[in-house]
């Protein structure tokens, strides 16, 4: 905590227009979270039209804390709901219930948040299309400004990988994803990135920076920064971090790599990337495979491309 706050203070005078406190559950800090928020406001020179997001776990917030966050200047809240189905939540090892998640959402509204994101997880153990439908019905009633819906990917090296999980098969998984996309779009939440949906004007400006190659500074253990064409990653060892260790990895992103990342990251977004004839062969191959479309000076994923994005991204590695 102290290490983090002193890092924030070291960046005194940094100009920025978005701040995002997340990764894990910052609300578990309780009142001390307010100190971090205050430190950020004191140090950074924020644009008057700033976006300041804090991630919150429905099981660790109350009206008091939410009110203080709002008062401190936070104007966007991201609620890690995951699901409104208790059985699925239990499978995921979440500490909150569906009921608590609904309560947390209403508390946030009462505290004055008018820009709320709900995080959902798709294709989790025991999930069915039916259970997703009922979760989405609740989302519809709550009517958030933004939804993130992530398909669970079990990666090698995570605890899930070695477990025998009762996961939906590939076909059901896609059915769930497509249903979710159609449902949210019909609610007026437009898919602007593979897993992100927002009402017009409520797209997360902070995250868009990652996909458009803008610079950012990450503070705290395991955080990453992208400054002056270098991408830095902090050590993920907390005790090393408090001992003052910072960058563990440093990667130079040269001109060529920047071009590739423009596509690799930019194509995640529905609008795609401005296309002026780069990577001709690759783009041709991908369009002929029906994964990509070039129109109006932009290259963007097709619906098939949204399902098979890695086949597209891989070409820019």
């Amino acid at each position: 905590m102290n290490a983090l706050i002193s890092d924030i203070k070291e960046h005194k005078g940094t100009e920025c227009d978005t701040v995002f406190i997340g990764g894990g559950t910052p609300t578990v800090l309780g009142e001390r979270l307010i100190d971090v928020i205050n430190a950020a406001f004191e140090s950074f020179v924020l644009d008057e039209n700033y976006e300041f997001t804090v991630e919150a776990n429905p099981g660790t917030v109350d009206l008091n804390l939410l009110g203080k966050m709002k008062k401190a200047g936070v104007n966007r809240l991201s609620l890690g709901v995951q699901s409104f189905n208790d059985e699925e939540l239990k499978e995921l090892g979440r500490i909150h219930s569906a009921k608590e998640a609904v309560e947390a959402f209403y508390m946030a509204r009462r505290a004055g948040f008018d820009n709320i994101n709900i995080d959902l997880m798709l294709s989790t153990p025991k999930q069915t299309l039916e259970s997703v439908k009922s979760t989405l019905d609740i989302v519809n009633k709550l009517n958030p400004e933004h939804v993130s819906a992530y398909s669970l990917i079990v990666e090698e090296g995570t605890p899930f990988y070695d477990m025998e999980l009762d996961l939906p098969d590939e076909d059901t998984e896609r059915e769930i994803y497509h249903y979710t996309v159609d449902f949210l779009e019909s609610m007026g939440l437009k898919r602007y990135e593979i897993s992100n949906f927002a009402k017009s004007g409520y797209e997360c400006r902070h995250n868009i920076k990652y996909w458009t190659g803008e610079e950012y500074i990450g503070l705290g253990a395991a955080a990453a920064s992208y400054v002056n064409n270098f991408r830095y990653t902090n050590t993920c060892d907390i005790s090393d971090f408090t001992d003052g260790v910072r960058f563990e990895e440093k990667e130079f992103i040269d001109q060529e790599e920047r071009m590739k990342e423009k596509f690799l990251l930019g194509l995640r977004m529905s609008r795609g990337v401005k296309y002026t004839g780069e990577f001709k062969e690759i783009i041709h191959k991908l369009t002929s495979q029906g994964l990509l479309e070039v129109a109006g000076g932009f290259a963007h994923l097709t619906d098939k491309g949204f399902d098979l994005g890695n086949l597209v991204f891989m070409e820019f590695i």
Binding site: E155, Y177, W211, G218, A224, Y226, L264, L308
Partner: peptide
Amino acid sequence: MRKDVLAKCYGGDITRKKKLLEKQKEGK
């Protein structure tokens, strides 16, 4: 194939996600 896409890719994750894609590409 119905699905092959990384659901999440944010600032702190780009380096690692690139490595995953690289591995997948090697396999291919």
